[in-house]
Design a protein around this nucleic acid. Sequence first.
DNA 1: GTGCAATAGTGCAGTGAATGCAACAGTTGG
DNA 2: CCAACTGTTGCATTCACTGCACTATTGCAC
Lengths: 214, 214
Amino acid sequence: MDPVTDTRTPTDTSTAAPACEELGLREQKKRQTRLAMHRAALELVAEHGLSAVTAQMIAQRAGVSTRTFFNHWSTKESAILGVVGDEGPRAVASLREKLVVMTVRQALHAVMRDGIANVPVDPELRDLKKRVMAKEPSLQSMSTGNLQAMQAELVDVLTESLDGEHARDHAEIMVQVGFALTRSAFSIAMRRGIDPVRAFDQVVAVYLRDDIDL
Amino acid sequence: MDPVTDTRTPTDTSTAAPACEELGLREQKKRQTRLAMHRAALELVAEHGLSAVTAQMIAQRAGVSTRTFFNHWSTKESAILGVVGDEGPRAVASLREKLVVMTVRQALHAVMRDGIANVPVDPELRDLKKRVMAKEPSLQSMSTGNLQAMQAELVDVLTESLDGEHARDHAEIMVQVGFALTRSAFSIAMRRGIDPVRAFDQVVAVYLRDDIDL
DNA sequence: GTGCAATAGTGCAGTGAATGCAACAGTTGG
DNA sequence: CCAACTGTTGCATTCACTGCACTATTGCAC
């Protein structure tokens, strides 16, 4: 567990950065500690339950101070979820680019698909996270609560590309439905243990074919 | 805890008017303090912003102790939103009843419409709440986070009424899309200051007519 | 009216999340 | 080897929230 005395070969960096270029030692360590905290958080919640786990405990198992813990994660829950926090701006920028060369619906579809594809799920922690998420429903609310933050911005961007008196209303509905399908896909992927992107494609197919509505 | 059943009035049955509430003095005062706290919370957030308002401040303005504040509300935010907390079980029971005499989609539609109709909004505090919700996006996440809690149960109930191998997946998608439309309706109603139910009907109409999808 | 049970309200002590600040240590680049 | 940069840390503090013991008020029966 001691990273200093770790005797593994330097080529064994597959868990940190898949096929990335040489990062600085500083950035390397940073990611290392982040991953350690994330793993510790998941393990502890799996062992003792969310309410029985404190930020101190997570920090201690990860080998960092409590203060450092909150330097990396804005809340205790974000460490469990492994939320980085830059998904919002990235999604907005991506949508802006795509709107230049695609229709509104194509762009939104692409952004949603990219978003679910880029959910960082370390394969080693995948079923651990799956178990934790299944056992603690409040974490799911938190996970979708993070999405909520970027929704308003996406609606803004989309509104600019729509015409008509109720452009904002239409944008609102499209984004909400888009996120609904994304959430469904992620939930289904977690439950069945399949690739989230594959689940997303299936959800969209089912949605279009069966004309799910109210 | 039901004041109707535990307040037996054997000598005076004429006061048992179901429409008007001849509530006990105790229950009356309780609701009074609850409303005072809810109003104080909304006012303070409108004045100083969510992060600058403490539970102590709300309690003080409402004329109660801090401890009493947390005897009524589980979190600071729930006092601002005025959340009672029994919406989940009620929605599930309602869905069960409706599934006996309706199709799956009709039942879900009805439950969603009822849900948005029964949002308790004191007319006096309505635009105050509207202003606060518009100014503090994180409160919207909290509001929808409460819905998230009941989603899983609704999916369970709906799954029983669906056939096929992917019944649960279909139920998941339907519920998620249903909540997406409900959220859109509520958001639009807040923004335009119109009746939420009316907004909901319009949203559903737009959704069906324009075939919003991905 | 009077006593009794139930419950709302209160004060207090304590836990834990989260932040600001100042100091320290390792990394990078020259 | 030095200097700028940045991650880490300890410390103090604020605030959300809880458990517990206690008081005050209310409802009810006699």
